[in-house]
């Protein structure tokens, strides 16, 4: 289908050049001058906000991990202390290893060596 734009015609005036529309360009630049900073500002705000929320969640997650670790440590310390109860250690030392309470004459104190 032919149209006015598809018809190939030789250029009659070889000196004809494309002339730029300076007014249109100025208007475009004006719009960009207003819109671009606004867009950057909006994008920056959104980015900062999302970072704050992301970091907030990250801090929360790390704090919970820390709390769980500290709690786990506390539980293990309680368990370790419970396992080292004197009566339990004494009973196992006696029953399983045949140990007996220390007698005074089995000990020499540093002050007695001089």
């Amino acid at each position: 289908m032919k149209s006015a734009y598809s018809i190939h015609r030789p250029v009659a005036n070889v000196y004809l050049v494309r002339d730029r529309d300076r007014r249109l360009r100025r208007e475009l630049l004006s719009v960009l001058a207003v819109a671009l900073p606004l867009s950057v500002a909006v994008l920056a705000y959104v980015w900062v906000s999302s970072q704050v929320w992301d970091k907030g969640y990250e801090v929360l997650r790390l704090e919970r991990t820390l709390e769980r670790s500290l709690e786990r440590e506390r539980v293990l310390r309680v368990e370790a202390a419970r396992l080292s109860r004197y009566d339990r250690v004494a009973r196992r030392g006696h029953d399983e290893l045949g140990l007996r309470p220390l007698a005074l004459d089995q000990v020499v104190f540093a002050g007695e060596l001089e």
Partner: peptide
Amino acid sequence: KPLVAALGG
């Protein structure tokens, strides 16, 4: 013949 290390201190 100390049977146990001295405990002084």
